[in-house]
Write a protein that binds this DNA or RNA. Structure first.
Lengths: 252, 252
DNA sequence: CGCTTCTATGTAAAATTCTAACATAAAACT
DNA sequence: AGTTTTATGTTAGAATTTTACATAGAAGCG
């Protein structure tokens, strides 16, 4: 009873990184706030979380905060990214085969994905590890040189790799977007890879949190009409949305 | 002025691990508590500390509490593996190119390796992430299906990968060893991969902790005479050692 | 130099969160 | 059944943090 709840809290914290007591209260309406406090206290004793004013954060999250550009990015716009990841997770059918990139949004998606029978290709090291925790998900890692800043691989020979593989869906995310320049990222080979994945898949879902809008990065890998579904957060501007819907692209 | 104080606070936190506002107040009697609060707030924004009720703690301190990030199962024969990893690390020359596997011993080696100019190929996800933390190490991840149990990849197409790459040294480890059956592991494709790596490299160093001796796993990937150096711990039996040295294999 | 503007800091009240203490309920034990 | 232990709820009060406003000094500028 108690232990179950505590483990559930720990898991939640692992996923979300940080939780307020209010959020916990919503998740566990049948116990009092005081009980949740005591649970957090115990988890703190066990060294598994850090209590901060208002709630608690997972140790992993803290470790991330400390790191490099990659890790700094993950702490920003967390809520939006979780929102997007949850939407994306709900779109994925059992027994399907898909490609995911290695970005931070993909990382949240990996965490939110239920343990369904899936075959997932990815170029993200952290994403692959996260997915590998789930019994029913079959993960294939794309090889290549490891890019330190985002813990992803990219390789000019990826094409050869893709030749023998099939997936229905590519779920990818961009570092920047404008209507004119499309979806772009900061690395040439990464852009190539994403383009390849997009071409290989029957459909492409793009995850884009609204903070990326208006920014431009050096390498464009997709334009508006190249995608089938845009998954974004509620701050997505209405006028932009129209640009997608008029091309029959679902925005959600 | 302000920046100096903030840096001083950061340093203090790094040393002490944790500080209350009261303690800070004592250290900086000439500014108000509110100012110190604001300093802590800023440091938190910069991702350098964690504010907790009553004060703040350094990120390092948090990490200490948590222990190992990955691979919880590595509690077995840790000391021996670290010993082996340190020996192996001392054998690696700057500016060389090598292959490492994805096992737990390799993980320790990744941690022990100095941040020298190296190019490393690996099929271990956790190993790749660990290595990627080091600025001067260039990491290439081998692609393939992710094996959940050891977070490594293996793929029948690895051969194609190796065709365009070169490395002088393969540092690998085995799950089991007997003089008759040689070095073996539990997965067919992993054995194939290790065999390939061995064939590609000019020399092969085998890391083997003594607990592996006398065990047999299904797939042999090397025999005694296939390796150049055996790196082991001090419990390695003397009679076995002779079997290696009489074939001119260095045992250390 | 006098003026404005911006930044850093101080003060104190208000808001929030946490702790402590006691009460009750449920579970475990004998 | 009765006793002890453990888990939980409730509340008041303590501690901490935030907010809002005030002030002083630094920086910029004609």
């Amino acid at each position: 009873m108690k232990r179950d709840r505590i483990e559930e809290i720990a898991e939640l914290l692992d996923k979300r990184g940080k939780l307020t007591l209010e959020q916990l209260d919503e998740q566990f309406p049948n116990v009092s706030q005081m009980t949740l406090r005591r649970d957090l206290f115990q988890l703190e004793q066990e060294g598994r979380i850090i209590r901060v004013r208002g709630g608690a954060m997972s140790v992993k999250e803290v470790q991330k905060v400390s790191g490099e550009p990659y890790t700094k990015k993950t702490t920003i716009h967390t809520d939006e990214k979780i929102e997007i990841a949850q939407k994306a997770a709900s779109l994925i059918d059992e027994n399907s085969s898909l490609f995911m990139d290695g970005g931070t949004t993909a990382m949240y998606l990996a965490k939110e994905l239920p343990d369904k029978n899936l075959h997932i290709f990815t170029n993200g090291l952290a994403v692959a590890i996260e997915l590998a925790q789930k019994k029913n998900i079959n993960v294939t890692m794309l090889g290549g040189q490891v890019m330190t800043e985002n813990l992803s691989t990219a390789s000019p020979v990826a094409k050869a790799y893709f030749d023998n593989t099939n997936f229905e869906l590519a779920i990818i995310s961009a570092s920047a977007f404008t209507p004119d320049n499309g979806f772009s990222c900061g690395s040439q080979i990464e852009a190539d890879l994403l383009k390849l994945a997009r071409g290989k898949a029957k459909s492409t879902y793009m995850m884009l949190d609204s903070s990326k809008i208006g920014k431009i990065m050096p390498y464009t890998f997709a334009h508006i009409e190249d995608i089938d579904v845009l998954i974004t957060d509620e701050n997505f501007p209405a006028d932009l949305k129209e640009k997608f819907t008029e091309k029959n692209i679902v925005v959600m």
